[in-house]
Every structure is written in structure tokens, then in C-alpha cells.
Design a binder for these strands. Structure first.
Length: 446
RNA sequence: GACCCCAUCGUCCAGCGGUCAGGACACCAGGUUUUCAUCCUGGAAACACGGGUUCGAUUCCCGUUGGGGUCGCCA
């Protein structure tokens, strides 16, 4: 039975490169009806705080990467690591030495087999190294702490790991690990080393790049399914041209053959597009909570506010919002009169000939409308356009600018209906006032 | 520096000896729409270079160049 694992060391962040490794482990296990496991490598007391560990769990839960068995915490495995070290010492696979003559006392050093080594990598093919390049290495520090290599291998054996799928920065370590598995008398797992994810410039991610952490994407309003899909396809393809795939679809066709062996650049624009695709497929009820969270964050929503109103707003916004974190910015004028006015748009649409007169006339007609709804509004505006022999757009644009301060947004008549009669009247009046004040005598025809 | 890995449009992928080198994102043009988004149509855009092998190389081999990884009593 296939058993894969994700073995992060909790640092307080989960990098997208790491989580992609987790995704591939998960996919491979699913593909082969195996199990996907989690091991927290929390042996460094400096970095391994409870918060850091929680961050790992949160990231995995958010992406739907729950392990199939309870996670193993490496910090609880100290005894097992040390026992394995003793066995290696007893069997002559290790020896004590004050390596490098540091004076720190003797540490335990693993003795490499002294032969050339080769292992098969599912992605890179056969990888080999001559004996001369394979040096002995420390497995237990002079202070008695087991080193990464030992702990990693001992725990993989304990967990029954059959496939090690990880970043290719571990390739050089693999020779050591293979030797360790053999010295410990265990089966050597299959290996698959993934190329790294690099930034838009093609360089390795550094702190300066920011936004390379799973939590950042969640905070910015990306959908977990979209990030999962995008990351899975960054370096892997099902072999055909499909790009939007459910986890199940990916799991049925995942294979190392489709995994690229060169580094992939992270392209946020494509992620954004993919997020939009997922967002569009998602029914309003399923996304409204997250839209509201963004409104709340920007002070546009308080508990107890009119939920039906927000739903109407989101409904007419359609699929224009592609990121939850854009919600407030794109809908602010529905929630407050204190919204930003795009000066360029204002000048272009309201300071042109006739605009003020049109708005004045339309405001009067709106006020006398028996039913203040989109259909009636549209009929009114179209009728006015016909009477005065002006193009509809000459009325629509000033109106939109007057009531929303911008030139983008949902259909004008639905928008006005949702805003309501009072607010519309107020905003048109204010726009007229501003237009008069800002217009030069020659362009002000009113 | 030593050892190892990698190389198709700007980006991500398809191609696994014979293709008009395909798709997606982004970009450009046009259409639909009251704006925007959506949607539709069209366009520009790549096999890093040099040698082989072969009737024939993007594809196989070797170099060059360019990227990257690893060289801890870190993980």
C-alpha cells in the first residue's frame, strides 16, 4: 500500500513550494488508493512554537489536505532516534568522534558504505554519485540531539513511508538517506524530487517577494480550490489540455510522468484568472460570508445590518468580483455616501454639454415614478432619450457617474433600483451642484 | 570552485523521429453590452547555440552558453 507524507518543519509560515509538495503527496496517495500522512518536524525548539504548528494545520485544512492518520510529532520521537543510532553504532555503521576537532565533545558519525551510489528518481531518472563524493556525516550531535537525516529516515521507517515526494533541494541528501535505510535494514522508499517554484523574475523566492505563503493567499481572498488547482498544474499536467480540474479528476490521472523537471515560475495573473473561474462557479450563498467579511473589514458592514440588501448588491455585481478582498472597493457606493469619486470620469461625463440639464429632468421623472424599479427606470430614461433625440449613452454615463462616482459596475438601472429613490435623488442633486461649481461658463448650459 | 540537475511562445503546460509545433494566462484588434466584467471572433508570439546519429530532428547523443540546486554537530 502506498503511503506518502508531508514533513514540514513548523516555521510559522507554509511556503507555496512546500504546500505544492504536500499536494503532490496527497494526489499520489489518492491515485493509488494509499494514505497521505503528516509529520511535523518540530525538533528545533527555537522555531517550533505551538503557533507555528497551528499554522501548518490551518494551511492544510484550508486546502483540504487532511492526513489520513493522526500526525506524527517528531519531537516525541527522540528515544526512537537515539535507539536507532545505538544500533548503527553497534553494527559498525557509525562511530564516535570529535568531528572537526571543535572541542565540543564527541558526536556520532554515520559511516557511508564506501561504494558508488545510485538511486532512481521518479522524476529525474537515475541519479548517481561516486564514493569519493559521499562523505560520512553526523547523525547525533555532541549534545545528544539527533540530526535531521537520522530522524527523517527513522520516522519514515516507523510510518511505513513507501514514496518520498519532496523538493529537489533534497537530492543530495537522498544518498545519505538511502544509505541510512539500508544500514537500518529497512526497505528504501521510492523517491520523487520536485523542481522548485521561482518568482516572476525566475529567481528563488526570498523574503522580499512576500505573498509566497499559503496564509497570504487566504488572507487576500483567494479560493482554496483555485490555489490548489493552480499549484497542482504548476509543474504537472494531466497530459492533455485540461486546466480546470477538480481534486478527484486530478487524483484519477496524477502521475510523475506528467511532472516537469525544470523550475516553474509562479504567475499570479493566471492564478487570478483561475480564481475568477472558481468564483463564478460558486453559488452566491456559498460565497456571501466571505464577501461580507471583506465589507466588515472595511467598516461597511456591522452585525445586524440588512442581509437581504447585501445579497441584492452581490447579485447584481454578478461575476465582476474576482477576489473576495476586492468586494469592499468595488461595492463601496452601495453602503456609504462617502465613496471615492473618480475625477476624470466626473469631468468627462458631467461637465459635458447637456449633462446637467438631463440629470435635472431625469431626477424629476424619477421622483414621480410610481414604482422605483429597474424596468420603470429604464423605460423612463429611454423615453427621455427618444423625446430629446439623444443617444442613450449620453444619459447613462452621467447618471452612473452621479450615483456611483465611477464608470464601472453593474447594470445602471438595477444599480439605481438597489440604491433606492432617496439615495439616488440625493446623489443626483449633489452631482448637479458639483458640476455647476466645477463647470466653466461656456460648458454649463443649464 | 567541485559535484549534480534543467532548457518549446513573455509565463504555465502539450509534443515522446515525419505536426501548418497545440492549449491556457497575459497582450493586441474587432463584435455583443448603457459602463465594466462575462461571452464570441481574429491576431502577434517559441523549439537557446554548435556539432553529430538518421532518409528525416523540437524530439536521440556530445559539447557550449544560460539558469538552478548541494557542498553544517540547520532542516
Amino acid at each position: 500500500m502506498v503511503r506518502t507524507r508531508f514533513a514540514p518543519s513548523p516555521t510559522g509560515h507554509v511556503h507555496i513550494g512546500n504546500i505544492r509538495a504536500a499536494i503532490y503527496n496527497w494526489l499520489y496517495a489518492r491515485r493509488h488508493g494509499g494514505r497521505f500522512l503528516l509529520r511535523i518536524e518540530d525538533t528545533d525548539p527555537e522555531r517550533s512554537t505551538p503557533e507555528a504548528v497551528a499554522t501548518v494545520h490551518e494551511a492544510m485544512e484550508w486546502l483540504g489536505l487532511q492526513p489520513d492518520e493522526p500526525p506524527m510529532y517528531q519531537s516525541t520521537r527522540r528515544q526512537a532516534h537515539l535507539e536507532a543510532a545505538e544500533r548503527l553504532l553497534a553494527a559498525g555503521h557509525a562511530y564516535r568522534e570529535d568531528k572537526g576537532g571543535t572541542g565540543r565533545g564527541k558526536c556520532l558519525v554515520f559511516r557511508m558504505p564506501g561504494t558508488d551510489m545510485v538511486f532512481h528518481d521518479e522524476i529525474k531518472g537515475d541519479l548517481r554519485k561516486p564514493a569519493a563524493d559521499l562523505r560520512d556525516f553526523v547523525i547525533v550531535r555532541s549534545d545528544g540531539h539527533p540530526v535531521f537525516h537520522l530522524a527523517n529516515v527513522v520516522d519514515d521507517i516507523a510510518m511505513g513511508i513507501t514514496h518520498v515526494i519532496r523538493g529537489d533541494d533534497h537530492i543530495e541528501n537522498t544518498y545519505r538517506h538511502v544509505a541510512l535505510f539500508q544500514a537500518l535494514g529497512a526497505d528504501v522508499p521510492r523517491y520523487a524530487h520536485l523542481p522548485m517554484i521561482v518568482n516572476a523574475k525566475g529567481k528563488p523566492y526570498s523574503k522580499r517577494d512576500g505573498a509566497a505563503y499559503v496564509g497570504d493567499f487566504r488572507d487576500r481572498g483567494f479560493l482554496a480550490d483555485a490555489l490548489f488547482n493552480y499549484l497542482a498544474l504548476l509543474g504537472w499536467s494531466p497530459g492533455d489540455d485540461r486546466e480546470i480540474l477538480t481534486r478527484e479528476e486530478m487524483a484519477t490521472c496524477f502521475s510523475f510522468e506528467g511532472v516537469q523537471s525544470s523550475p516553474a515560475r509562479f504567475d499570479e495573473r493566471k492564478l487570478l484568472w483561475m480564481n475568477g473561474e472558481y468564483m463564478r462557479k460558486m453559488p452566491l450563498e456559498q460565497r456571501e460570508a466571505q464577501h461580507i467579511a471583506d465589507l466588515r473589514k472595511h467598516g461597511l458592514w456591522r452585525d445586524g445590518d440588512d442581509l437581504a440588501y447585501v445579497r441584492r448588491v452581490l447579485e447584481i455585481m454578478g461575476d465582476r468580483i474576482k477576489l473576495f478582498s476586492d468586494t469592499a472597493a468595488q461595492t463601496i457606493y452601495f453602503f456609504t455616501d462617502n465613496y471615492p469619486v473618480d475625477e476624470k470620469v466626473f469631468q468627462k461625463t458631467l461637465l459635458c454639454e447637456g449633462a446637467v440639464q438631463y440629470l435635472t429632468d431625469l431626477a424629476v421623472r424619477f421622483d414621480t415614478l410610481p414604482e422605483f424599479n429597474a424596468a420603470a427606470l429604464e423605460t423612463t430614461v429611454r423615453a427621455y432619450a427618444a423625446e430629446h433625440n439623444v443617444k442613450l449613452s449620453r444619459l447613462v454615463h452621467p447618471l452612473r457617474a452621479a450615483v456611483s462616482g465611477t464608470d464601472v459596475g453593474p447594470g445602471l438601472f438595477e444599480m439605481i433600483e438597489v440604491l433606492g429613490r432617496e439615495r439616488t435623488r440625493r446623489r443626483i442633486a449633489r452631482a448637479i451642484e458639483r458640476a455647476r461649481a466645477g463647470a466653466s461658463p461656456t460648458t454649463d448650459v443649464s
